[in-house]
Every structure is written in structure tokens, then in C-alpha cells.
Amino acid sequence: MKNFEYLQPKSIAEAAGYLKAGNGTSIPYSGGTDALVMMKDNLISPKKVVNLKSIPGLNSIDYIRGEGLKIGALVTISDLAEHPVVKDKFKILSEAAESIASPQLRNVGTVGGNLCQRPRCAYFREDFDCLRKGGNACYAFDGENKLHCIIGGSLCYIVHPSDLATALLVLNTKISIASGEKINEIPIADFFVLPDEDFTRENILQSGEIVTSIFIPDLPEGTKSSYIKFRERAVWDFAVVSVGAVIQTSGSEIVSGRIAFGGVAPIPWTESVVNSKLINRTIDAHIADEIAESILSNADSLEMNGYKIPLAKNLTKRILTQLLM
């Protein structure tokens, strides 16, 4: 790790100023559970580390019935997981938060940091001059690609590591980004970037832009949600495949529903063709199988990750059965 200057801004504007002035040599710092690892492994060597935690007002969770849930970017993963409203109304989110890393990491990791973390592809993290680091090849394509993407990859085959991202995508979350003097609110689906748009970044943030909060619209009555994360180790592991679902029912009818997947694509992944099957649909014995069979129809696996397709389908069956039966 190289020496760096540690800055403690008191406002978003001040922080943004530092980041912008750094022109790519300054990094925002929230929980540090990824940034510090990246620095220690010399993957990044920032000249300035801008601590966002010195900015007041970014760590609260506010719920307004009928409107929704606003979560500050500096809310820790454990505070999110344990928040009574989140546990009660947004189960998918508390389950996703609870599934992240380990208690120690959840205690310092933040919502904003979790959404902006870098990929865990071994070729990105280890000593390889890979495409995403400015090199000229993806080593995973014909390398060890058991944990890589089965859809959405091109040139680079990472999966997005964030569990919250998958859950928030299902929840139609909006992300607030401070950009200069303005705060822009964009749908989370527009936040993430596929490799064929730009294989060097995972999201649209430009230098000097900061995620300040997220907003989740309130869920109608009769809505159930869940998040299932499948990993090789029982805890402290990234998702091999995860699935999150939100479904609103009325009697024996599904009013609407959304499903999204983690661990399958370079971004949190959802499919409108699948979600459209969950609008005004009668619940019957075949529904879980039928929906599961319809997912990831364009998946194109690499040599070692074909198992992710049946895995995602089985997890879809499981989550729908759990929510509907």
C-alpha cells in the first residue's frame, strides 16, 4: 500500500471537490472493506482518500408510509439488516443485507460502498493485466471461469458482487447521485454498466460523483418478498447465484411481480419477459416451474459455469414456491 493523504470533508460538495480535483487519483472511502483490500493489494494506489463518513446526514433510514424508504449511503449493512421497518416490510432487503460477508464486515460496510464495490473476479484481483484493469485480454474467458457470468458478458465476464444491488433492482430503487451542485435521481437499472458499454467500470459514476442515498418506493399491501443467496460456504462468501423476488398477490391471483438475479451477469440482472409473466396471473401448481423455465433464455455459459443455469432455475422455483405456496 502506498502512502496517501486522508481527507475528512464536512459536506458532499467538499468531498466532491476533492474527488474531482484528484482526477481519478482520489477515491471516496466509506466502510473500506473493499477499498482497503484494493489498496493493500496495490490494485489501486490513490493519492487522496476522501472519507465520506465525516459528512453528516448520510446514515439514516427514513420510512414514510405510502411513499417509501430512504436509506442514506453511509448506513451500515448491519443497521440496514436489523432495521425494524426493513425487516417487516422489505424482507428481501433485510435478507440480502444479512447474507453479506460476516458480522464484522457488515458492521463497517455501507450501503453506498456495497453498490460501488469492485468485482471479485480472481483475474481482476490477482496479478493479471486484464481488460478491466486496462490490459488487453480477459483471462477468465478460457481460464478458471466457474464463478463467472452466464449472460451479459462480452469481452469481460465478471459477475457483479453486490447482494444489495440485486435486491434493490427488484424493488425498483432509485439512486441519488451528487454531481457538482446537483443531485440526480436515477433508476438503479440505469446505474450499472455492462462490459459492452464500458468494460473498465461497473457503474456510471464519474470522478467527483457520489452516491448519497437510495429510495425504495413503498410496497402495496399484499406484497411478499424474499432473497435467496446461494454460496459454496455457509457464510462469508459471495453469491454463486442469488435470486430476489417481490410479488404482490390478491387472493389466488398475482397482481404483479419482479425477479432479479445476482451472480449470473456483470450487473444485477432482471428480465422483462419474465417479469411480464408475473402480471395478473392466476397462481397454479405449475407456476414456479413455468417461470423458472423461462429465465435466462439467452444464457451462454463458459466452459465451467454451465451449472449456474439449472442453479438459477432451481432457486427461482424455490423462491416462487416459498412466496406463493
Binding site: 471479485r120 480472481a122 483475474y123 484481483r125 490477482e126 496479478d127 493479471f128 483471462y139 478460457d142 481460464g143 478458471e144 459454496e232 460456504r233 455457509a234 457464510v235 462469508w236 462468501d237 459471495f238
Partner: peptide, 28 residues
Amino acid sequence: MEERKVDSNTGKVLTANLYSYLIPTIMD
């Protein structure tokens, strides 16, 4: 779960840390 993985194209180890080299936890 445990496995040291080497990239056969480059001869480099892919699991030289404790988040990709999985060791059982008490939950396992």
C-alpha cells in the same frame, strides 16, 4: 470447498487469499 487453483495459461495462483480460498466456518 478448499482448493488451490492455478491458472494453467499463466501458471499463476488464483486463490492466494482467504475470500477465494474457502475454509469452513463454524456455520459449516
